[in-house]
Nucleic acid binder design. Structure first.
Lengths: 132, 132
DNA sequence: TTACTTGCAAAAGATTTGCAAACGA
DNA sequence: TCGTTTGCAAATCTTTTGCAAGTAA
């Protein structure tokens, strides 16, 4: 909230609702999911506001945009570096918190400057594995 | 080509043009890039055919769909496992061929079944690093 | 010949934008 | 009050789809 104000951004009920919805959320929701969830309590809430707010939150580093699903963007309020597992059966996204050593220096020797790394694991999640 | 026929798919001039365009291509083109490049030689080529063909090529394992750019899909005819570096300045996609050991077994112990992994590196490419 | 493909245009789905009215500071 | 934000609708962009006409085998 303070970060928001520090940027000269106003703290509106809609923004607080979105912040609340995302706080501690491990579901990696899409804009649509967020919109639908909040539409109930804020019947006039519009997509524009959701996208606008998500964009602002991304800018101030409050959330990360995930590019795991070719269909739509997902959002993750957990900004600590971690990786993701995408279940090809149920399409759910899971957090992978293992610290995984990567040969950054080897790649940087080739002239690349690495700011961020992200590992995508694809496969079947524990629940779907049991069912099949 | 044989794979195409083996699937009961016809080898049309459009499909051959797309196969030719992709063969050895390291540019990770998008559907639009492919379409525009081929439109010159095949003025009647349509987006539908490009998407249709890319979908077929994906199914027979001739190419891989890359999900690196939130704006659009990119396609990679190199189906050997490798990773990618995305330059945040010029947005070009580079191949990273290092074999990188990942703690698959640790994650699988948690019940996940991993079929594929892909590492995304974000940062500045050698060329853009020099300029800035 | 015949089933698969193409090309067109329209549709669909996600995201963005313009702008007047509403509102937080 | 004043500048930012909201909500609506329209616009945009990528990708998909329906279907009649065309074509590889």
């Amino acid at each position: 909230m303070e970060k928001y104000k520090a940027l000269g951004l106003k703290l509106t009920p809609q923004r607080m609702a979105i912040l609340n919805y995302l706080d501690g959320n491990k579901e990696h929701p899409s804009a649509e999911t967020i919109f639908k969830a909040l539409k109930k309590r804020f019947p006039t809430m519009s997509f524009a506001t959701v996208y606008n707010t998500l964009e602002n939150l991304k800018k101030i580093g409050y959330l990360v945009e995930l590019n795991l699903d070719p269909q739509k963007k997902h959002f993750d309020p957990d900004t600590k570096p971690h990786h993701h597992f995408i279940c090809e059966k149920c399409n759910k996204i899971f957090d992978i918190y293992h610290e995984i050593p990567l040969p950054i220096s080897k790649i940087e020797e080739e002239g690349f400057q690495i700011k961020k790394t992200h590992i995508q694991f694809f496969g079947t999640c524990p629940k779907c594995k049991k069912i099949s």
